[in-house]
């Protein structure tokens, strides 16, 4: 039978991890933390397709172990499933800095729906000023509107 989402993969380079696929009980992130050497670490989460409750527990343990060892973590391209968990549980962000993340948009003109990459430093002044981020629709180049609740989706940046 088919797999329910791409299996979890992780690619590593000095100071950098790229996680992709499905984070669940098989991802073993807590063990992965032990392999990280000291120094700043960038974690790219752009291709994380799915995370369940056991994956969240593992992810929280991963961040905790890095924090215990004084590793500074920056998260890049946080996929929407990761953002939703960070909004639900403080520990899912932990001590990490968020450089960029994916936010949901929808185009009323052509019906496109999907995620667009947002740079935290650019969107934060907009959201803190009570505004709503906008993006260009990749299909019709029209204006795509943010497709979630602003006060809930950006909670994790506070």
């Amino acid at each position: 039978m088919a797999e329910s989402a791409p299996t979890f993969t992780v690619a590593s380079a000095p100071g950098r991890l790229v996680m992709a696929g499905r984070i669940d009980e098989r991802a073993r992130l807590a063990e992965l933390a032990e392999t990280v050497t000291a120094g700043p670490l960038v974690v790219d989460l752009g291709d994380v397709a799915y995370i369940n409750s056991l994956g969240v527990r593992d992810w929280v343990m991963f961040l905790r172990r890095l924090a215990e060892r004084g590793v500074e973590v920056t998260l890049e391209r946080c996929a929407e499933p990761m953002v939703l968990q960070m909004n639900m549980i403080l520990d899912a962000r932990g001590h990490a800095r968020i450089a960029s993340f994916v936010a949901p948009f929808a185009c009323d003109g052509c019906g496109w729906e999907g995620g667009r990459l947002i740079v935290t430093a650019e969107v934060l002044p907009v959201v803190e000023g009570g505004g709503t981020p906008e993006a260009e629709c990749p299909e019709c180049q029209g204006r795509a509107r943010f497709a979630d609740f602003v006060d809930r989706y950006f909670l994790f940046l506070a």
Partner: peptide, 25 residues
Amino acid sequence: RLIDRSTSPRQGNGGAGLGLAMTFL
């Protein structure tokens, strides 16, 4: 559990205690 964001996953071999809250959302 969704009321308080400082909630933590349950440790151990069993469930994380978050599944129903995640399902609800």
